[in-house]
Write a protein that binds this DNA or RNA. Sequence first.
DNA 1: CTTCATGCAAACTGTTTGCAGAGAC
DNA 2: GTCTCTGCAAACAGTTTGCATGAAG
Lengths: 150, 150
Amino acid sequence: MKKNNAFLDMESQIKKLGYRMTKPRQMVFKVLTKTTEHLLAKEIYLDIQKKHPDIGLTTIYRTLEILAKIGLINKFCIGDGQSRYELGWDFKEHHHHMICRNCGKIIDYKDFINEEITFFNRIEKFLSKNYKFAISNHEVFFYGTCDSCK
Amino acid sequence: MKKNNAFLDMESQIKKLGYRMTKPRQMVFKVLTKTTEHLLAKEIYLDIQKKHPDIGLTTIYRTLEILAKIGLINKFCIGDGQSRYELGWDFKEHHHHMICRNCGKIIDYKDFINEEITFFNRIEKFLSKNYKFAISNHEVFFYGTCDSCK
DNA sequence: CTTCATGCAAACTGTTTGCAGAGAC
DNA sequence: GTCTCTGCAAACAGTTTGCATGAAG
């Protein structure tokens, strides 16, 4: 997690790919650097609204799409029809998610990650070859019931 | 995979929980037993329409929700805002998914499953205890580019 | 000064809900 | 006969698009 130069990385990444650096893009990225949550587009929008009421929800969506395409952020879904966003893999330690089927709470965990990486590297190599599939990343979800919902 | 008695299982499962056995419910389940694909609600609807034009899309959604709650089918999403459905774990061998980020193609794989189960059982035990989380199942997704999209 | 990014309103899409009639048990 | 299930139409929510204006480089 190289948080110090996250913004520099972001700016150079954005410009390198021909995109322009604008306030909405800075803000969306900034919101995601300041939380460990997995935010909805609307939540990011509402947060930004507080200080920048001039930035619209449409722009948030367009920005999230670009940032996700570049890989600066991760987009994922837990099955409720909404997309959630978190900081990209380059800025956050490798981790996975536990999801409560009842309240939708998401818990990050990083336990066993080293073992997991070793194991998945082996699988990836095999799958890539056997299914002629170029694997870029993987995700693990555990589903169940969280403590307060039991 | 006990396909022979899948329908018996389904019927008893449904009735045991106080639901009624109806044609739409039979049909939805049947469509999913007859494919290895991961169908959208609309695809299931269109398939059923061919022989039963009287069954509506709303009913498909309501049926899918019930069957998923009971565990007769699995619901999952790959990030395009739509839900996909496949036969439940009891009727299908344990497997996971590779998803092409370009065309959305989904490939099932069952390789390394035994090793994986051993590994994940250990993780589950640890996570359950440490995060006070009752884990019911897990999912693994590999993302990348499929052969024909390369 | 050119080109890309933005905001607004309107469109779109998958899914859900209200309600009266039909069907399961 | 009771109570659940269904189909239809309408509502809903998240997301996307068209277009004229504004800002980045």
